[in-house]
């Protein structure tokens, strides 16, 4: 069970890759899919690794990322 997840607004994403570099868990990568503006948008490559730290969203210049976390901390 992932501790966090992100929602990426693909039409806002310009594929700059700053979020990919900012993610400490290497969750994100380029999807290879182009949006309507022709940008190679970012998606979650390893969703299970997301901890919901929001570094990606903080660094996104297009404010294209929303971040969610588990309501209850995952049981060990």
């Amino acid at each position: 069970m992932p501790r966090g997840t992100v929602r990426i607004d693909e039409e806002r994403c310009k594929g700059c890759g700053l979020c990919i570099a900012a993610c400490p868990q290497q969750v994100l990568g380029f999807s290879g899919e182009l949006n309507h503006s022709g940008y190679n948008v970012v998606h979650m490559e390893r969703p299970s690794a997301c901890v919901g730290c929001a570094f990606c969203a903080m660094t996104c210049p297009d404010i294209a990322i929303e971040v969610y976390r588990q309501k209850v901390p995952a049981q060990s």
Partner: peptide, 23 residues
């Protein structure tokens, strides 16, 4: 891509004071 967020809480979103205009 749709992600499942049903049992999750949103911790980061677009500020209310910004319009929906694309940069």
């Amino acid at each position: 891509m749709q992600v499942e967020t049903a049992d999750m809480v949103k911790v980061f979103s677009r500020p209310q004071s910004l319009t929906a205009a694309k940069s």
